[in-house]
Design a protein around this nucleic acid. Structure first.
Lengths: 197, 197
DNA sequence: CGTTATGTACACCAATCTGTGTATGTAACG
DNA sequence: CGTTACATACACAGATTGGTGTACATAACG
């Protein structure tokens, strides 16, 4: 027990099975859903024996949990780390989804797991909170009078667009972006929003 | 073949098995999800033999389809048929959900079925379109300059609140209502909105 | 080198799921 | 009454699922 049997294991041991399993999870859970993806199929795609998979993860639940935890570290960096944009533009950039995004994996997981007590659901809540916080942060930079509220509102718009896109099978993010523009303009005093003119 | 083996069958034949099956579907699909509800359990709750269930529905898919079709006829009548409210108040009333609403069944179904080609997904789209249309109608009565756009926007807010409520396990409809108020006020010329003062 | 962690191949189990076959009731209607 | 459509009880098929047991291979490290 050298206490390094898990975690990031910075290339020390192993031949990458764990990473391949998580990679296959991302692909299959996203494309087919969690419940419709069996461990057999997952192992085949990961090119890993089933026995190995169960040596890395105690069960499918734990794999799902780790799959969702992976999204945490980088909360939409492609949106928030763009220094070339004004805060206001950054807020709006969150609504320019590359259309490859099928549905926020946490919404899908919450529906499929159907258990608010599931550890994966905890990560989902944490992630949603993190998104709202980053939006609030940008809102503060943009000079919003109530950044927390604006952040929460924009986060709701993103989720709404994601859900609606999935159900209607057509992109709803432009609609969400239009709403966002209205919200942002009505939440930022005129003097601040003048910075981008 | 008297062509009345299906459909509403207005109390003519049968002893209500079909209705009990659909009733149990509503309860179980809502509480547990579609995939987590087996036909055995469903039949037990409906107090119907499994054989009977399969005489009324060719398969689970057809049952799911019919389950979703049932929501169509009355599109949120408790919101839109209230003559005591002004159009603007009616629009906002759509965001006062009784909290018992777990998640729009169509969002859940879209995630669980995971197949845009599924006939049930078609009903989902129709329902969403119907909701947006009714909101647009109320928006027109309220004097909005672009009722269709406002209807679509409000529909997106409802879906966002529903999805977010599910993931965060806490009511997001107040946030959505706040956004709706901003949108409505900015989409209706001042002269019209004065009607409610 | 040898040890140990890591991974493999493959059969297998128990549970569960959708769906059927068969033989038998029973309520409703003419 | 008798006919017929509706419904039942119950066993069972066939497939898939999550998960194990066992014996064996191999890469990494001291």
């Amino acid at each position: 027990m050298t206490e390094l049997e898990k975690g990031p294991l910075g290339r020390r041991r192993g031949r990458g099975a764990r990473e391949r399993i998580l990679g296959a999870s991302q692909q299959l859970f996203r494309d087919q859903g969690i419940n419709r993806t069996g461990m057999d199929e997952l192992c085949a795609v990961a090119q890993v024996s089933k026995r190995t998979a169960y040596q890395h993860f105690a069960g499918k639940d734990e794999l799902v949990t780790e799959y969702l935890r992976r999204f945490d570290p980088d909360v939409m960096p492609e949106v928030f780390d763009r220094a070339d944009l004004t805060p206001r533009e950054r807020l709006l950039a969150a609504f320019e989804m590359p259309a490859s995004t099928p549905l926020c994996p946490y919404i899908a997981a919450a529906v499929e797991l159907h258990d608010p007590q599931h550890p994966a659901s905890r990560y989902a809540r944490e992630y949603k909170t993190a998104i709202a916080a980053r939006l609030a942060e940008a809102a503060r930079e943009a000079g919003a009078t109530d950044p927390e509220q604006l952040g929460e509102q924009l986060a709701l718009l993103i989720d709404g667009a994601a859900a609606r896109t999935r159900v209607l099978d057509s992109d709803s993010f432009p609609t969400a972006a239009a709403i966002a523009a209205v919200l942002i303009d009505s939440a930022i005093p005129a003097s601040s929003s003048a910075a981008q003119r």
